[in-house]
Simulated scan of single mutants.
Amino acid sequence: MECAVSKDFDLYRPSEEHDFLRETVRSLAEAKIAPFAAEVDETSRFPQEALDALVSSDLHAVHVPEQYGGAGADALATVIVIEEVARVCASSSLLPAVNKLGSLPVQLSGSEELKKKYLGSLARAQGMFSYCLSEPDAGSDAVGMKTKAVRDGDFWVLDGVKRWITNAGFSEYYTVLAVTDPTKRSKGISAFVVEKSDEGVSFGAPEKKLGVKGSPTREVYFDHVRVPADRMIGGEGTGFATAMKTLDHTRITIAAQALGIAQGALDYAKGYVRERKQFSKPIGDFQGVQFMLADMAMKLEAARQLTYSAAAKSERVSAGGEGENLTFFGAAAKCFASDAAMEITTDAVQLLGGYGYTRDYPVERMMRDAKITQIYEGTNQVQRIVMARNLP
């Protein structure tokens, strides 16, 4: 489907094109993704039905520019796609979200040849993209990574381990950060595109997680992996800067995921309290329940406005704008929206009482799924450090 929209959208208000996109994605998600969400979570299996549905509608990587065969969607459109998928299945929302995370370094800093090859392949659904930054001993302290790349003629040879890699083993392409000069700290880190088929690439066992259980998370091992030199993303030593610029943009997609999870929980809770009766009337008629719903909706709308504002800034930065302070707003959106999602989903479970605590109802899954949004792409404690260093 065509989902490119105007880049002149209002800071807080989506355009008619965005609204139409939301309706389209919501219909698709409810018809082709929601029916499998509980079973995907229960069995911890890859959401293939969701991937097939997203690919068939050209929604699997909407951020890829049109010149590389993509839909050319702006940042807010990408947020809306992720939000609406997450509303029914958080695991499935990581398909478009991580495709952007993994490929954005190529889009930001890669050569034209890399963009044509890998962004084009992603747009044509010839393979998903994953992002390899974290390591067993280098999570929040990413500069402390130990994966190394050594030059050998026209190749770089990579050795090391990456941990917590979303869609590892299912993605064909990986943006990998590695140390090329250990004497230069962050300026001695470079980025590469590694392919799943490269000799020496292997994967660990799937992690057994609390939530987003349908999204595979594994370690990725690099054992003397020879990567052609032209697969370096940007210049030598620029990888860490590219990685941080990437996160400025993609933390907004985690905020979008949090919005969707929270919206799904609120929607379900609203319906439940209208039907559930105690003391001969719907529990939604009690003031205490009404206040809970009001607070949930208030927090969600505040998170949405901050996220959409950050998306607008992301788009303007991508277009060459300056002075947007995207680093602050991306961190703020991710932090606020994920904290709100955790609170809203917890309250949704509370509103359903004992039923909410069982797997017969979706809100316990949503509460478990919400937790990860406070952790990945930088814990919310790290986000607060980022914000404090970049105050408007």
Score class of each variant (00 low, 15 high):
267 D>C: 00
213 K>M: 03
232 M>Q: 11
220 V>P: 03
225 V>E: 05
201 V>K: 01
264 G>Y: 05
232 M>G: 00
263 Q>W: 12
167 N>Q: 12
187 K>S: 12
180 T>P: 02
269 A>D: 06
254 I>V: 15
203 F>Y: 14
221 Y>T: 06
241 A>R: 15
206 P>A: 03
188 G>H: 06
192 F>Q: 02
233 I>F: 09
214 G>P: 02
240 F>D: 02
231 R>D: 04
206 P>I: 00
173 Y>Q: 00
266 L>K: 09
237 G>N: 10
213 K>V: 07
242 T>F: 06
209 K>T: 12
222 F>S: 05
253 T>C: 09
259 L>Q: 09
215 S>Y: 06
221 Y>I: 01
213 K>R: 15
196 K>L: 01
212 V>D: 09
226 R>E: 14
241 A>P: 03
202 S>R: 07
212 V>H: 02
224 H>V: 06
261 I>Y: 09
263 Q>P: 02
208 K>I: 15
222 F>N: 01
166 T>V: 12
246 T>Y: 02
259 L>V: 04
192 F>K: 00
268 Y>R: 05
229 A>F: 00
256 A>W: 01
239 G>Q: 04
204 G>K: 04
187 K>Q: 13
263 Q>C: 10
242 T>I: 12
205 A>W: 10
232 M>W: 08
170 F>H: 10
197 S>H: 11
254 I>R: 13
182 P>I: 11
173 Y>R: 01
187 K>P: 05
249 H>S: 11
194 V>L: 05
210 L>E: 12
242 T>M: 11
172 E>D: 14
194 V>P: 03
262 A>R: 03
217 T>C: 13
219 E>T: 00
265 A>V: 07
195 E>L: 13
182 P>R: 01
206 P>G: 05
210 L>W: 08
176 V>D: 01
207 E>Q: 11
225 V>L: 02
226 R>S: 12
226 R>C: 04
222 F>P: 08
187 K>L: 11
248 D>H: 08
179 V>K: 11
184 K>Y: 04
171 S>C: 14
209 K>L: 15
196 K>V: 04
200 G>D: 02
253 T>Q: 15
227 V>H: 04
220 V>E: 03
180 T>I: 06
242 T>V: 15
249 H>D: 08
217 T>K: 12
248 D>Q: 14
208 K>N: 14
184 K>N: 13
180 T>L: 03
267 D>M: 04
167 N>L: 14
178 A>T: 08
210 L>N: 13
195 E>N: 07
256 A>Y: 02
235 G>I: 08
241 A>Q: 13
249 H>G: 11
198 D>E: 10
260 G>K: 04
239 G>E: 03
249 H>C: 11
184 K>Q: 15
212 V>P: 06
245 K>L: 14
202 S>G: 03
